[in-house]
Simulated scan of single mutants.
Amino acid sequence: MNKAGFVYVLANSAMEGLVKVGKTTRAPNQLAAELSKSTGLPSAFIVVYEQLFHDCHETETFVRELLERRGFRTSPNREFFNAPVHEVVRAVCTAPGAIERKTSSSVMHSSEGTDSNQDELDLLTFNDSSQGEPSTHAWEDIFKEAENHYWGLGDCLEDEPEAYRLFKQAASLGCLAAYPFLGRMTKDGEGVRADEQKALDLFKEGAREGSVYCYLEMAKLFDEKDHIKNAHKCYSMFVDKFSYDLVDGIRMTQDEVMSIYSHCAQLVHRKWHRRKAIPTPMQEFILDNALYVRNAAESNANYGKKMGEASYESVWRETVDFIDAFKKDSRLLTQ
C-alpha cells in the first residue's frame, strides 16, 4: 500500500484564528477548492502550506499530537486548531519522513491536478520553491542546548540530568539524533538510573522512528553482552539501511558518521590486537570505507601522541598499518 501523500495546512478568512490540518493523496489545492464549495462559507480555503511525506497518515497523527501537546487543539476528533499559522507550519516541518520537493513530482500524476501539457522544462524557473519555507525544526535549539549541557560547552555547566531531560524533549519533537544519546545515557547511568533494557528500548524506538544509527548502537550493546547472534542481526540491519543520502543533519548527523568510522576502527583494532573476529556484516562495510576508518584510527594514534601516551599511540599506529595492509589484501580482514 502506497502511503505517500501530502500533509497540508488550510486557512479561511471566514474562520479567524482557526487552521485546518489534514492529509491527502491528491493535490491539496484541488482538495481546498472542493472543500470551499461544500462548506458554504463566504470565502474560500487557501493552502497555506503543503509537504509531501512517505507516510502522510503517520505524519498527520504526529503533527496533530504535537499541536495538542502545545495546547492548540480546539476539540477532539477534528482537524481544526486555534493556533498561529507559523506554529502549525513549523509543526509540519518538524515531522520526519518528508520527500524533497525536487522528487515530489515522481509520485504525483496528472489526474491529481497537474497540467498535462507541462513538461520538466517548465519547472526550470528563477523561483526557488523552497524559499520562504522554515529552514529550522522545532527541536534544533533544544537538541543543541542538550548537547551543551551534556558536554559542558559554552556557558552551560556539565549537567547530565538536564541534558537527559532536553534530549527527551527533543526526541518527542522528532529529533532522531536524540535517541542515541538517550540510549547511551540510560545504559551508562548518566543523569538517570542505569537500565540496559530501557536503553535497548530507546534504541529500538529511535530505529523505528528512522534513526539508522540506532541499529549500530544496538549492535554495540549486544556485542558488549556477548550476544553475538543479536549483534550480527543489528549490524546487518545497519549495513542494509545505511546510505550517505541519509547524512543531512536530520536523519543522520555528521557526528554520527564520524562515530560510525570510529567504531569500525575499534573493530579493526580488536581484530588486530585481540584476534577477535570482525562481525561478518561489517567486513564489507569496513573495506568499502577503509580510507575513513584509517583516518579514525590515525586520529586515535595522534591523540595518544598528543597526550604523551606512547603505548596507546603505538598500538593505534599498528592498527593503521594493518588497515593499509588489508586494503591491499582483503583476506587479512576476514581470516
Rank of each mutant, 00 (worst) to 15 (best):
E318Y: 09
A296C: 14
Y303M: 07
V320S: 10
A296V: 09
Y292N: 10
R317V: 06
A301W: 00
S299I: 02
R317E: 12
D321T: 14
V293N: 06
Y312W: 11
Y292S: 12
S299R: 05
S299G: 04
D321Y: 13
Y292V: 03
S311W: 08
K306S: 11
F322K: 10
Y312A: 06
S311N: 08
A301I: 01
K305S: 12
R294Q: 13
R317N: 13
E298V: 07
G308D: 04
A297P: 05
V320L: 07
K305R: 12
G304P: 01
G304Q: 00
A296F: 15
E309P: 02
N302W: 05
W316H: 02
A297F: 07
A296N: 15
G308Q: 02
L291A: 14
W316F: 08
M307D: 02
R294K: 13
D321C: 12
E309L: 06
S314V: 00
T319H: 04
E309K: 08
S311D: 11
K305W: 05
D321R: 15
E298P: 03
S314I: 00
E298M: 12
A310S: 14
V315F: 14
E298Y: 14
V293G: 11
R294M: 10
F322Y: 15
L291T: 11
F322H: 13
K305F: 07
